[in-house]
Computed example of a mutant assay.
Amino acid sequence: MEKKSLGVIGGMGPMATSVFFEKVIENTVASSDQDHINMMILNHATLPDRTSVILNKREELFLDAIKNDFKLLEFAGVANIAIPCNTSHFFYEKMQEMTSINIIHMIDETCKTIHQKYGDHSKVGVLATTGTISSGIYEKGCNTYNMQLYKPNKVYQEQIMNTIYHVKSDLEVDTKVIEKIIEDLVHNEGCSCVILACTELSCLDLDDQAAKYCIDAMDVLVERSIEYSGGIVKS
Rank of each mutant, 00 (worst) to 15 (best):
Asp35Trp: 12
His36Asn: 12
Ala45Tyr: 01
Leu47Trp: 01
Pro48Cys: 02
Arg50Cys: 11
Arg50Trp: 11
Ser52Gln: 01
Val53Ala: 15
Lys57Asn: 09
Glu60Phe: 13
Leu61Met: 12
Asp64Asn: 06
Asp64Pro: 02
Asp64Ala: 03
Ala65Glu: 04
Ala65Ile: 06
Ile66Phe: 02
Lys67Asp: 12
Lys67Leu: 09
Lys67Cys: 10
Leu73Met: 08
Glu74Arg: 09
Gly77Pro: 06
Gly77His: 07
Val78Lys: 11
Ala79Asn: 15
Asn80Ser: 13
Asn80Glu: 11
Asn80Gln: 09
Asn80Pro: 09
Ile83Gly: 13
Pro84Ile: 10
Cys85Leu: 07
Cys85Ile: 06
Ser88Pro: 07
His89Lys: 02
Phe91Pro: 05
Lys94Glu: 15
Met95Gly: 15
Ser100Tyr: 15
Asn102Asp: 15
Asn102His: 14
Ile104Phe: 10
Met106Tyr: 03
Met106Cys: 01
Ile107Ser: 08
Ile107Met: 10
Asp108Gln: 05
Asp108Ile: 04
Glu109Trp: 11
Cys111Trp: 02
Thr113Met: 14
Ile114Gln: 10
Ile114Leu: 09
Lys117Tyr: 00
Lys117His: 00
Lys117Gly: 00
Lys117Gln: 00
Tyr118His: 00
Gly119His: 01
Lys123Gln: 11
Val124Lys: 00
Val126Leu: 11
Leu127Phe: 03
Ala128Gln: 00
Thr129Ser: 07
Thr129Gly: 09
Thr129Glu: 06
Gly136His: 04
Gly136Glu: 08
Tyr138Met: 08
Tyr138Phe: 02
